[in-house]
Write a protein that binds this DNA or RNA. Structure first.
Lengths: 173, 173
DNA sequence: TGCAACTGATTTCAAAATGCAATCAGTATG
DNA sequence: CATACTGATTGCATTTTGAAATCAGTTGCA
């Protein structure tokens, strides 16, 4: 899990940054799930990451300049992890990745609705989302605060699908 | 290197397909380098893939439906690997990945010129490229054969940078 | 015919990464 | 003062990786 610099090819270097099974999962949970703390990432991860792997990847992502860490005033041992601009600009890649996976892989309905929405929203929606992430993580002022946040929109869509599934296949008593 | 199905999330499933250090490198060499044979991929890879890893990944990519294999008429032991539509639609992802890496990672000039061109070309260029790949790998007719192929354009740009570097820093005798 | 080079792999084995469970010391809470 | 929570770390078994050597069959050439 170190940076080999096998070649100066952009695709290769990108792979060396997040060409493993966990780094992008962590960034996904921070970006789409809004998670900022170790425990949130540990327990909230759908895929069940182990604590040693999480600690290792957080450290590595910090060394790579994708994350920063700050003290949480509410608890002396609590740390808040923030995305850097480098990580925030992954949004279009994650959007494409989700769109591709939705088409070609056996994704579940409730989880793919967000990818679908993000794909349909296109670059304008990605830009809006990145603006919101910059606001949350870097303190940048929100340029055009129009309507509900992208994350809220995505979550609402997710919950709507879950609700409709519960209705159609739920308890009949 | 098997498909765990840790969750039905599109991003997670995509990661399970090419969230390793070699699968995307192989696909990159096939897509941008036009490589179709085992030896071409083995010796042509800038990153120096080992033959057992290459054999394993080719097999895995076939099982996943990203590649197909056919006999080469010129040699009874020779095989030709072809991209499937599933793999061809990775072009936009590779383009984004290259663009991101070019901005944030220490890429070399001659290798990043292709990523830059592909980024500037945008979706129209990607579509043209995918059309050409479909023609090469799936036998689909070329819809609008306008000008030189995308691959040739990218290669020409690469060679131009290499040449200019040789000029400015080359031998003075 | 003989022999070297080439074909797509496979074998072997050491090193590294992974994953799970238990554990850690410091901090807040009741 | 006991209990739960904070971000980790440790130990250890399993899995994956990677490099070199090797494989059997095929081809080209002398």
């Amino acid at each position: 899990m170190s940076l080999d610099r096998r070649s100066g090819c952009p695709i290769n270097l990108s792979l060396e940054v997040f060409g493993d099974r966990w780094s992008l999962i962590i960034l996904r949970d921070m970006i789409f799930g809004g998670r900022r703390h170790f425990r949130e990432l540990l327990n909230g991860s759908m895929e069940g990451i182990a604590s040693n792997i999480l600690a290792d990847r957080l450290k590595r992502l910090m060394e790579l300049g994708m994350l920063t860490k700050a003290d949480d005033p509410s608890h002396k041992q609590k740390a808040i992890y923030s995305l850097t601009e480098m990580a925030i600009t992954l949004v279009p890649i994650l959007a494409h990745l989700g769109a591709w996976g939705r088409v070609w892989l056996p994704t579940s309905d409730e989880l793919s609705i967000r990818a679908e929405l993000l794909e349909k929203g296109g670059p304008p929606m990605w830009e809006k989302f990145m603006g919101e992430l910059r606001h949350e993580h870097l303190g940048t002022p929100l340029d055009t605060p129009s309507g509900p946040s992208v994350r809220a929109t995505l979550r609402a869509a997710y919950e709507a699908v879950v609700a409709s599934k519960t209705l159609s296949a739920g308890p009949t008593t």
